[in-house]
Design a protein around this nucleic acid. Sequence first.
DNA 1: TTGAAAGCGCTAACAT
DNA 2: ATGTTAGCGCTTTCAA
Lengths: 339, 339
Amino acid sequence: MSTTLHDVARHAGVSIKTVSNVVNGLGRVSAATRERVLASVAQLDYRPNLSARSLRSGRTGVIGLAIPELSLAYFAQLADAVIEEAEQRGLVVLIEQTRGGDRTREVELLRGPRRQLTDGLIFSPFGMTEADTELLDIGSPLVLLGERLPDANVDRVTMRNVEAGAAATASLVRIGRERVAVIGAHLDARMGSAVLRYDGYVQALREHGLELRDDLVVEVDLWHRSNGAKAMRELLARGEPFDALFAMNDELALGALRVLQEEGIDVPSDVALIGFDNVDEGRFSRPSLSTVDPGRPEIAKMAIDLLLERIDGVTSDDVAPRELQSTFRIIERESTQAA
Amino acid sequence: MSTTLHDVARHAGVSIKTVSNVVNGLGRVSAATRERVLASVAQLDYRPNLSARSLRSGRTGVIGLAIPELSLAYFAQLADAVIEEAEQRGLVVLIEQTRGGDRTREVELLRGPRRQLTDGLIFSPFGMTEADTELLDIGSPLVLLGERLPDANVDRVTMRNVEAGAAATASLVRIGRERVAVIGAHLDARMGSAVLRYDGYVQALREHGLELRDDLVVEVDLWHRSNGAKAMRELLARGEPFDALFAMNDELALGALRVLQEEGIDVPSDVALIGFDNVDEGRFSRPSLSTVDPGRPEIAKMAIDLLLERIDGVTSDDVAPRELQSTFRIIERESTQAA
DNA sequence: TTGAAAGCGCTAACAT
DNA sequence: ATGTTAGCGCTTTCAA
């Protein structure tokens, strides 16, 4: 059996309350007693039982992070940022994978028993639709990542997707490209990053007096690398000339890049390319990949801030949901080097 | 307040024990009562309080996974596999990052309060040295990943690094290469993957009657992509000709690939290249990267099996530590295509 | 400043 | 087949 408060109390010749006070730095304890208690704590190698503490306090010190898949670089790096930020605040992170937009898994996760284990959840939804919005009402603090489920009555962190999409597109135009293709669009969707980034794309074209051509727009369901390759083949098959490509994330961009090179199309001289997310790999691809940095550490910080304010009750339940936006920046690398 | 066992018991008109039995599927409960209890559970939306359950049972249902960094693709994919495997068994995973070989962080993590929150730990050590071995004696189930701390008295999962290193090297020789360079070596180390894979390399050269040339061996501390690039520049600067390269992991390989291409050296015709780890990105690089698949799902499964056997007491404490090895396989892609 | 005691929600030993 | 009850280790009134 491991050491308990009682053991320490007995050893130090004080009451269990005093030990508790010392351990938690609460209450008034005379320097002498504190000294004695700390000595006993060290000597007995006492460590508080977190289950008991949770049971009593109603807090676990654990927050959940639900993402589609850890093997997608974007989410791995996001999780990294969240764990880092949580640690600053003495919290620990439980990661749950929803396996790329599986609605059922997402719903189960929201209602599942694991919610009891966490003080709150940071959730990046993909499969749930607007009809499921009310399922988000889980009775414990929740912060959404991204623009999905726009009508949900919860705090969320997003980024300026429209502006970022426009800036990415503009960075291609600025180096003299006039036929800018885009892959990753979800034309039928009403909401989501795809819609917003596409809006930015359209907006930038318009601002620069360029024509929006449907045959330069490729829809892609999941933003995986393999789909980037597929989309690029489709685009090439259409035969419509283009001299630049905006890929809605880096995975798509790298998949597309691979196909462009197979076809002997040079990047950036024939086709300039910009991605989105600033995933590490883009720094080492050849050519290195220009991209949009979404400000992951800031996103992690904002999400945890919002969550903690609800957990701590600083923000009462009847305060309307808030939305925080991270600041992005364009990172120009070789794939958009002016010719 | 959320619903408790008592609430359900009262609502169903039975005792709390019966409810507990039903919820946990234990004991003999008549179909009728079970029915009634389940109805109440559903109606009251009862969910067991996991803190209370843990306090009572001494189990949390959480296992820890301590890895250097989630943003390294290998570890992200490993974590993915561990979470997946854990889920099969109703366990959940708490990820802790040791930030690439920081000994202090590793030691703190082993003794830290979070151990109280987990039933056991899967640990991939990097910073701790043999002098720290006894710190692994943490009094709760522990499984090591990899060959570090060889004298530790704990279960571990490894892979056949020597054989795999030899097989990788041999795959280069098999396509006619005779001057095989290697990057990632730790020549001064006594143990670790670097030593073993290097042994395999040496062994394969010998078996094929090839000369081991010191000037074709590049040491690299951390196996990051940037270091792969650096190592390749160093190798090229030496001026010693080579027609193949064994990189000790895929990150190194991709970093090296990038430099080779900058220098106009074609892969695979000028230099054939094989990495190690079978990270996703290798499938989409250009050329796609040949590699060694370490069998991640198997590693995850073995680690959790070992851990659970200790947790459940199936394996008693005085059973000597066991070592399980995953099976690897060589994956041949474009970077080792015969000319 | 310190102590005593109740009880968080659950499991399991024991009773019926 | 079902009920009673004693804690798990901690925090937190309430007393002293």
